[in-house]
Design a protein around this nucleic acid. Structure first.
Lengths: 189, 189
DNA sequence: CGTGTTGTGTACTAATCGGTACAGCATAAG
DNA sequence: CTTATGCTGTACCGATTAGTACACAACACG
């Protein structure tokens, strides 16, 4: 292992975008070669198990990004409210202010979910769990924290669906503002 | 035109379920023949333009169902709050309490949207518009009504994503209860 | 009881699918 | 320079894709 022209990490962004736009089934190898600029030889060298392994690598990458940029700040920020605000900023950035779709969400909706059940499951489970904990630390009671966390994560996913359906990213950014508002403890509780 | 063994309307439910589970690209003709029990000959007799026409027919059917069971009650119910409650009941029924996915939502997320852009667009546009009007009639100011309508429709879509991702329909039914609560005018406004 | 019309299954096409095999090239080590 | 290793493009594979063509079957009508 001496020379490394293409690393897995180099192609994962292109892979992710391809899966996002076409879904798992719709992302054909010819489309993937076009988007990555790599021939089948290179692709199967980097991912011996083909599309399945490519998708797993992308899901891993997404999970890693959220761990570092969303979950960790939520867990470790001294001021939980600051961690939550950080989450919203990161999410807006990640989804390109509503112009990008959630890969895990697209996998979840059709039969692709069954192929990557544990990855899809744990992505949302981790997100709601960590967010609920932060909300609780910021003053919500356990039940409200859990409910709000579920509402926020679902709201984000739904806003992405709506924004893309309407072809209007503004739908997403507006929804994010309102969801963020709901994560602040009310003065009248 | 004398004999009618199979009508379009007879096969649309099976078609809809196939598209829901596999998406547009993933719903192969062999899968469709299996689910509908009809051979290719019959399918192309009923839908001369193939898959595209099948999907259009299904989208039409969904739009019709929502018009009759959701939009019309929202518009014409004397008590707007009753119309809204009726909507939530109808939606829970339509999505099988979270065990069924939104066909339009799945189309919206990948490149299938471009094929059916106007149908996808108008489905959500009509829903939010009619719901916002009902909310306004029930006492919300214009701005809050529009925002709440967007939140509710997005919340429903997101809850469907989450419920399927977690393989837990309860996520959906719980979210629906909370969304319904938010459509009641607060006593403290 | 023929005779049309109307559905329907099946055989077929060309294209594309995911995946494999392999020849050849570029580079690092000796 | 020679050799070995590892990366990459390309030709190929069987399977499957959407769609077409057509022969046959089922019933309505005369």
């Amino acid at each position: 292992m001496v020379r490394k022209i293409a690393e897995r990490g180099d192609v994962i962004p292109a892979l992710a975008e391809t899966f996002r736009e076409h879904g798992f089934a719709g992302a054909s190898l010819s489309e993937i070669t076009k988007r990555t600029g790599l021939g089948k030889g290179s692709l199967y060298h980097l991912f011996p198990n083909g599309k399945e392994e490519m998708a797993k690598a992308v899901l891993d990458d997404v999970a890693g990004w959220f761990e570092a940029n969303v979950f960790m700040p939520l867990r470790e920020s001294e001021d939980p409210a600051a961690g939550i605000d950080h989450m919203f900023k990161a999410v807006v950035r990640f989804f390109h202010a509503g112009r990008r779709v959630c890969l895990v969400g697209t996998f979840a909706l059709d039969d692709t979910r069954d192929r990557f059940a544990s990855e899809v499951q744990s992505y949302f489970a981790a997100w709601t769990r960590v967010l609920a904990a932060a909300l609780k630390r910021s003053g919500f009671d356990t039940r409200t924290a859990r409910e709000t966390a579920e509402d926020v994560v679902a709201g984000i996913q739904g806003a992405l669906v709506l924004a893309r359906a309407q072809d209007d990213p503004g739908v997403f950014t507006r929804a994010m503002k309102r969801l963020q508002q709901r994560t602040r403890v009310s003065h009248y509780d």
